[in-house]
Simulated assay, not measured.
Amino acid sequence: MTDQRPTLVLVPGAWHLPSTYDLLRGELDALGYPSLAVKLPTTGPDARGGLRDDADTIRAAIEAVSGPVVVVAHSYGGIPATEAVTDLPHVQRLVYLAAFVPDIGESMYTLLGAPEPDVVEGMFPIGADPRAQLYADVPEAVADLAISRLVDQRHQAFADRVTRAAWHTVPSTYIVTEQDASLSVAVQEQMAAHAKDVRRIATSHSPFLSRPAELAALLDEIVRG
């Protein structure tokens, strides 16, 4: 690896805007890592499109970076990142953070073993208790702000199937969130089997909000590894 620090391209999950990574980006900056967070088209406001639109946006963000890139994708974001990151030689690694890891022909529904709906138009609602589901160990003020920033999410993105799977050719790491009430550890471990390297962090679903310094240090360790 060269002395040049890669840019970390951060992909949020469903219902989340790029601002969800603000605390983590501050910690990464302190460690000397440039970063950018992607706004997915299928998340509001003005949500549109499906999986392919998200993947195209991620790919465009990566292609705009000069120099090496590490992609970090959270939760649903793992699906469009898997579609997007193939055949980009300056991507050094794909990090799945409590994320879905599909193979070709799979969707979020197939990964969860759920029946695919007949209609996927419109928005998919957030759970009734996002604090418990997503932010159980996040400081109250930070969680309140995160909840206030949640936006609409297009349903189609959950049902679309991937046509490419970057983890077949791109070095990948899976970070298991061990106290996750949204994506169970058992499901995470099944998907982590696709990764070359598996790490763990003792947090809920959103370590970028609950333990941003610890997560930044873990990402630094993965990049340097």
Rank of each mutant, 00 (worst) to 15 (best):
M1H: 12
M1Q: 10
M1T: 09
T2G: 11
Q4K: 14
R5A: 15
P6A: 11
T7Q: 05
V11N: 04
V11G: 00
P12R: 03
G13T: 01
W15P: 03
H16L: 06
Y21R: 03
R25I: 06
L28V: 01
L28T: 02
L28R: 01
A30V: 00
L31N: 08
Y33G: 08
K39Q: 15
L40Q: 01
P41K: 03
T42D: 03
T42P: 02
G44I: 09
D53G: 14
D53C: 02
A55N: 06
I58A: 04
I58Y: 03
R59Y: 04
A60Y: 02
E63M: 03
G67Q: 01
Y76I: 01
I79N: 04
I79K: 06
A81V: 01
A84Q: 05
T86S: 15
D87Q: 14
P89A: 12
P89D: 15
V91A: 03
L97A: 05
A98F: 05
V101K: 08
P102V: 00
G105H: 06
G105P: 09
S107W: 07
T110N: 10
L111Y: 14
A114G: 02
A114W: 13
V119M: 08
V119S: 14
P125I: 11
P125H: 13
I126G: 14
D129G: 09
P130T: 07
R131H: 04
Q133L: 15
Q133P: 00
V138C: 11
P139M: 08
D144Y: 00
S148F: 01
S148T: 07
A159L: 04
D160E: 12
R161G: 04
V162W: 06
V162A: 13
T163M: 09
A165P: 02
A166V: 04
W167E: 08
W167P: 07
T169Y: 11
Y174A: 00
E178Y: 06
Q179E: 10
D180K: 02
D180E: 03
S184W: 00
M191V: 02
A192E: 02
H194G: 01
A195I: 02
K196W: 00
R199A: 08
I201T: 07
A202E: 12
S204I: 00
S204H: 11
F208N: 14
L209W: 03
S210N: 13
L215A: 09
L215V: 12
A217N: 09
D220H: 15
I222S: 09
V223N: 13
G225V: 07
